[in-house]
Design a protein around this nucleic acid. Sequence first.
DNA 1: CTGCTTTCTTGATCTGGGTCAAAGCGCAGA
DNA 2: TCTGCGCTTTGACCCAGATCAAGAAAGCAG
Lengths: 243, 243
Amino acid sequence: MTFDLKDCGTCPIRHRAVCARCESDELEILESIKFYRSFEAGQPVIWSGDSMDFVASVVTGVASLSQAMEDGRTQMVGLLLPSDFLGRPGREFAPYDVVAVSNLTLCCFRRKPFEKMMLNTPHIAQRLLEMTLDELDAAREWMLILGRKTAREKIASLLTILARREASLALQTAQSGTSFELPLTREAMADYLGLTLETVSRQVSALKREGIVQLEGKRKIIIPDFDLLVAETGDDADGGVMV
Amino acid sequence: MTFDLKDCGTCPIRHRAVCARCESDELEILESIKFYRSFEAGQPVIWSGDSMDFVASVVTGVASLSQAMEDGRTQMVGLLLPSDFLGRPGREFAPYDVVAVSNLTLCCFRRKPFEKMMLNTPHIAQRLLEMTLDELDAAREWMLILGRKTAREKIASLLTILARREASLALQTAQSGTSFELPLTREAMADYLGLTLETVSRQVSALKREGIVQLEGKRKIIIPDFDLLVAETGDDADGGVMV
DNA sequence: CTGCTTTCTTGATCTGGGTCAAAGCGCAGA
DNA sequence: TCTGCGCTTTGACCCAGATCAAGAAAGCAG
């Protein structure tokens, strides 16, 4: 795959440096239909059912996809970190609520021309297929978490996932001693994990008490021994979906 | 999309009748790399981690994808009904256990030539992208079920999903008075829903006792009033993921 | 510094669904 | 016809996590 949405489509700074095909027509088209949008933490990006005339990828910050039941119960069904893709070519209405969890910048492409371009440039459909398959794998890992794990295992799994993603953004693998800023409130963590915020708070406190994680303030997580944390997830040691 | 895997790739009986492009090269290639495999109910199709040299689509029967934790807890993460696609181009090892839930026939394509063909025929990647996006939506609906619904709502949701899929295979929409054969054991339903089989049994009995469903034997489900069942799912009336 | 709000923690109590145990049911094979 | 086995149902009991209810901590505006 020589054409990479992550490098070429998302970020005009990166793609010039990285991608051999950058001077191609596709890129020119992408550039011409591209615009940026920013959101403050907590702001809605789009509501379920709204018409959505763009697709986008996350440049900085974190967004969540969630589904709500009419009695107010909500379940987060997707967590978008930088380089993740938002939206579905060929679909007019948003199927989920999208909310900026932290301050957020999106790189948007107008949907119609994006779709048209997809028809002519197979690389993009193929790249998008790959990304979607990865997302499907992540969703399925998440289903195991929701369906079968205990509250403690859920918290450990979430922290592991976030630590791994955080590390991979820096082109590293998660290691002992790493620390990262939790981009989620306790309530958002609860929505992610199918728990209540009280249970989240209790389990985080328990992991802290037992020295499996350290906290600096409410949001900064330090992982003194990564294997110790992974042991709490209930997964086998190699962990995560295999690729 | 003139080229449709569901009609053209899966089933040599249907595609001749349905698809205008049937005499094309792609079809010839597909035919040349195609073979069928059958499995009895309960048989494994492939284990997580095994090398998988084909992709396939389901012709008849039901297959499940599941993930197991090493202590034996398992969570079903995908349910494949006729016309669903199995496997991932570009990936050598199976990430999940695939099991034939009922008697099962797969229409398989050797993976390498299938991948090669995908590079030349954008229709296939695009069609596959659509199917994958639908699967992702289904997975996300499932996450809401797993994370936030009560046992009773979970059962009602599963029955609703199965009734809808059953109906759509017959090119209809689910209606009051429909009946269908449950393709899943109580244990498989439990694995699907993140419950124990005892709880599944109790909740099915409760729905029966209250006249929301009727049972003929253990497996034949009759839905006297579809809206009554949908009301038990906790979803809003129009139901399901919107398209 | 003070008061207000939002977020988080902790405690007490309750309950839905898990766990363990024992039958029922239906069918294939002898 | 009987027997055995896999699937399902039902009962009794228990516990992880939900719910309800205070507070504590951290920001932030004035």
